[in-house]
Amino acid sequence: METIQNYMTTEHKSCDSTYAHFEESILDDDLNGTKEYGKKFSDEMGIHLKREEEVLFPAFEEVSGGQMGPTQVMRMEHTQIREMLKKIEELANSGITKESKKKLIGLLETLMILMQQHNMKEEQILYPMADRALQANCENIITSMKQIQHV
């Protein structure tokens, strides 16, 4: 049986892989690659965050007693991730100069650490808790999440 932890961790890994391509394109001054992988990452990440916010978190909040628990912190971090990603996209799409590249590398590195510490919390704590709390309902939740295909 597929668990929330496995399903969502695989999504994290897929996002990470696209992110690495996005970074590489910027480093190589590859404008087409930057645009392609930038959009791909933004879409993948957007869908992943939407799946959590619209399906997983509400289901978890229902059994754990409200929005003030761990999901609240996760939602706040999602906002931080979106804000940083927006900055990166704006800078990358406005044409990469030597100066903007340096700024971009700083933003990319910071976003990476931000995302990873966020993922760690989810993979180590939140997803296992959700699997335990939602038990039989897990499969339905995963199916509902899979149905979200657009940001």
Binding site: V63, S64, G65, G69
Partner: peptide, 10 residues
Amino acid sequence: MDMSGLSLDQ
């Protein structure tokens, strides 16, 4: 569900 002591805050 018991979530006492759980914090995902930084």
